[in-house]
Amino acid sequence: MDKAIKRYFPIFVLPTLLAFTMGFIAPFLVGVWLSFCKFTTINDATFIGFSNYTKILTDGTFVHALWYTSLFTIVSVIFINFFAFAIALLLTRKIKGTNLFRTVFFMPNLIGGIILGYVWSLLLNGILLQVERTLTYSSVYGFWGLVILMCWQQIGYMMIIYIAGIQNVPGDLVEAAKIDGATNWQILKNVTLPMVMPSITICTFLTLTNSFKLFDQNLALTNGEPSNMSELLALNIFSTFYGRAGWEGVGQAKAVVFFILVGIIAVTQNVLTRRKEIEQ
């Protein structure tokens, strides 16, 4: 059996490999190549070296989008994980209707980002109307609008992961701690938290990359208004590529920089939280 798999593995791998090459590796390489080119349509490009990359810095919107995104990521990672974990703790207690609550909290996650963005822009604009403001009045409104939207959407999903983690904490450990006279807080801090560290790794990874790469919600909620001030990185790349004639290459260069940034952040985060995980 093993031998057969070994002998035929190229045949089994081939379809996936082909698909992966066509759908991922090839576009990625073309993308990197295009970031060094000037072009209008992508099959008609001329090589111009690094000037796209130097243009990134002269275009102030990228730097602004970078720190705006960082701030947004930090805030939303903290909010989402804190509330998701808190709700997960609550819903693993033996209270009535936990299943119903879990379903309800999870449901927002099933709605697409664009639709969510429009729904929330209506809701928030309706509320802001009371004080004669709109979401796009200034980037501060847009920022908190996005945070609220993301929390609403993601908390349920992360909660499910935390619930799975918490339910996997061995009952005997908790029991032993109780017998030793540990308070609830001590159990949480010294037993539950270390045991759910893998869930925390996954959840912080997901929220971190999700927030950093956020696009549709941003597009639908504020579309970067006013003056590109509420623009996250992904939207900034998109509007550079499609919104400015002659700037396609710069948009592409931004995308490459963006890829490197996301890569660095994701790997660092993974290493950091992995270290805290413990074997059962």
Partner: peptide
């Protein structure tokens, strides 16, 4: 409408 609402 009020000018503060124009953006939306």
């Amino acid at each position: 409408c009020a000018p503060t609402l124009l953006s939306g």
